[in-house]
Every structure is written in C-alpha cells, then in structure tokens.
Design a binder for these strands. Structure first.
Lengths: 222, 222
DNA sequence: ATTATTTTCAAACAACTGTTTAAAACATAC
DNA sequence: GTATGTTTTAAACAGTTGTTTGAAAATAAT
C-alpha cells in the first residue's frame, strides 16, 4: 500500500519534468521508467495508459492552480463595483507561483506543460482541461467583462484569445527568454517580473485597442 | 525532367496540407506518399530526408511572405519620420494574404504551419527559419523601434515577444476561432478581419502598456 | 502459517517510423 | 538501336513506440 504510492509518485515526478522539457509525444515511457528506476509496465499498471499519465501529471498542477485562482477571484469579487482589468489579470500571479509548493521549480514546469498542452497532439489535452475547469475559466471571463462592461461579447471573445496566446506563448518559452534577457541586457529576470510586464501589456491591449467598430467607446480613457 | 517536377510538387502539395492539419511529427511519409499517389522512397529521393521536406514546404511560403513583407516595409520607410506602431504592424497583412497565390487557402495553411513551427520538435524549424530570415525580422523590429523611440531595448524585447505569442497563437488556431465566432455570434469572419482586430490589440499593448520602470514615458499619449 | 491480494518484473507483441537497396522502367542523347 | 543517365518501384532494414502477458515477488488478511 505504501510501495504503490512511492512508485506512482516517482513516475509522476520524473514524467512531469521530461514532459515539460521535451514534450509529451517526444517522451517515451521507457525514458520515464528508466529515469524513475521502475519497471516499464508499471506505468500501464498504475495509470492505465500514457494518455492517462499525461492527464494525471497535468491535473496535479491544475488542482493547485485553480484552487488558488478561485480564492483570488473571490477576494476581488468582494467589492464588485469598480473592478479594473489590471486587477483581474493580477489574480493569475499568485496561483502561478503557488504551484511552487509541488516542487521547487513548479511554476516553470507548469508553464511549460501549459504551453505543450496547447500546441501538441491536436489539442486532446486542451479539450480535457477546458471542460474539466470550464467553471474557473468562465468566472475569470465574467470578471474581465465586469471590468469592461462596454465591450461587446464578440470583442471580449477575440481579445480574450489574443491574451491567451501571449500568455501561453510567453510562459511556455520563459526559460529561453530569461536566458536571452540575461545575455543581452545583463539582467536576470524572475518569473514574477516577466508576469508583471506581460500583464501590463495585456491589460493595455485589452482596454485600449481601437477596433473600427467600437472606437468611440474607448475614446474617453484618460 | 518533367516527371521529376510533377512528383516533387505532388509531394509538396500534399505534405503541406497534412503538416498543417496534423503537425510534422504526426504526419508520416507513408501517409503523404499514399495520398500523393507516389512511391514511398520518392520523398527521400527528391528531398533527401523528411526534415528537408519540412524545410522545403516551409520555404515555399516564407519566400513569398518575406518578399512581400520587404516591399511593404520599404514603402513605409519612404517617409521615415512619424511612423506609427499600427502602420508597422499593418505591413504584415498584405504579405499574409499574398501566399494565397500559392494555393487557394494558402494563408490558412501558412498560418497553421507557422504555429506548428514554433511549438513542435523543440524548435528545430524555428531556429532554421529565424536564421535564414533574420534580416527580415531585424528590419521589422527596427521599424517598430522607430515608431517607439522612447522605449528601452529591454522593453522592446519583451513586448515584441508578447506580440509574437498572440500572433502565432491566434493565426495557428484561427480555424477553430472562426468556427466558434460563427456559432456564437452568427457572424462569419474572414482572416483579414481577425488580423485587423489582432493588430489593433497588439498596437495598444505595445504602445500603452505601463511598466513600473517606464510609466512616465507613456503618460503623454493622447 | 496459509491463503488472498497487490505489485513488480522480464519478455514478447504488434504496429509503426524514416531510410536504404537493387532491380526495373523510363527518358534522353548519340 | 545502343548506351547513358534519371526516376520509379517493391522489398527489406533497423529502430522505436505503447501495451499485454504470465510468472515471480512482496504485502495483507485470515
């Protein structure tokens, strides 16, 4: 009963690191089991299939992340009137840092996994995540809409996806970006600094983008 | 001499469609050659390897795209003073539409390929593209800097990457987004409409994002 | 101590991958 | 028409993949 947990966790720990580094399809069960020093068949025994292992790896992070995010959003909703776009986006920062409790570089792993999830395998994982945590996503978009009540739901839809693109892309590649920043500007940046810059960028795009159809609505920002 | 071109082109045409639809790793040479009705070995005979085939597929689009983009940028550079961020970003629209000359849905294929290129296989293709067309990329960033001379190169660096994220992500997934837009708002959108919205979003993010370090510099926009 | 249950293990399975080979078919030139 | 070069073809190669099997080992329950 104890051995089971040990083996299962050994697999999870190694798997998430390898998945984050090389991708899901590019990581074989043999690589995982070899590095975890467990038998090849134990993945299928404990998880059923590789696909289920991937979902299990992802779920461990999503659980922590979404719980924390729900908390943050609840706090923001306490004074409903006058919610700012920037504040809504800032609810993401703490949850993204909270996954460091899972492992020291948890944020980094989680972000890379997120990036992989959105690009690979024609989006099986994306759909799995989207429907399992749709209530979190919905609550977030509603908050964003409250911060920008004048926006049509069509504008909301598009800007939301533009945001997600930047977010996923930046987070998934944050390691490379950190290295470039280090060598080009001799400035080491931590994840939170990147997030702050990113969120400032997205808030501006979300609030101030002037589409031909609703230019007027935005002409009054100070 | 004629047969060679026919076979080579048959492979290219089928390959680019399958690559765009399912990804590079997820498309086998057997699928390509079967659908193109040519022999399996002909890919290795004409292109040398699968990797070279991928690059060839990509190059055909990049050639048209970058040529057109260089033209657009040259036109913009004619009156150097007073270049707007939005104008710089708009130079991308026509080149992205120009690849429709390669095939009817060329824009769609090219965008999906771009998305794949940035996510898959740990970035082999991304590096290949980046170094082959680095002069185009550099010219574009210089224009962007001219439109925002007050920005530090560090701010430039980050905002550029935030932009790229949105761009790649949105273009790669444009088909799904189009479908959702169609069903949710009963409004069919073409690629150019998405691009216009996207570019407006990015221009706002690029110009108006307020970082703690250089908030002052932006406090004067009208 | 003896069942019963769970977990590990080595081996094999079946399917798939990109690539190479050597002979056949085809085209071109003299 | 023979010779030369190019392209196509079927077959085999060598490697990888996720999954299954059935016996062995370890653990738990009686």
């Amino acid at each position: 009963m104890n051995k089971q947990i040990i083996t299962k966790n050994k697999i999870l720990n190694i798997a998430e690191a390898l998945f984050a580094e090389h991708g899901f399809n590019e990581t074989s069960l043999r690589e995982i089991t070899a590095e975890a020093k467990v038998n090849l068949a134990s993945v299928n025994y404990h998880f059923g299939s590789k696909k289920s292992l991937i979902e299990a790896v992802f779920e461990r992070y999503m659980e922590v992340f979404t719980n924390s995010l729900m908390n943050e959003m609840a706090m923001l909703e306490k004074d409903v009137q006058n919610i700012k776009t920037l504040e809504v986006l800032q609810t993401l920062i703490h949850p993204l840092m909270a996954v460091n409790h899972i492992r020291p570089d948890g944020s980094s792993v989680f972000m890379k996994l997120l990036g992989r999830a959105y690009s690979e395998t024609q989006g099986h994982l994306r759909r799995f995540v989207m429907q399992k945590y749709s209530h979190v996503f919905l609550r977030f978009t509603r908050l964003l809409h409250k911060a920008n009540p004048e926006l049509s739901s069509e504008s909301m839809f598009w800007r939301l996806h533009f945001m997600m693109g930047s977010f996923i892309f930046t987070l998934a590649g944050h390691e490379a970006l950190q290295e470039i920043s280090q060598s080009d500007f001799d400035r080491k940046v931590d994840i939170e600094t990147i997030l702050t810059r990113l969120i400032a960028f997205l808030a501006a795009g979300f609030e101030y983008s002037r589409e031909q159809s609703d230019t007027l609505k935005h002409s009054t920002h100070q």
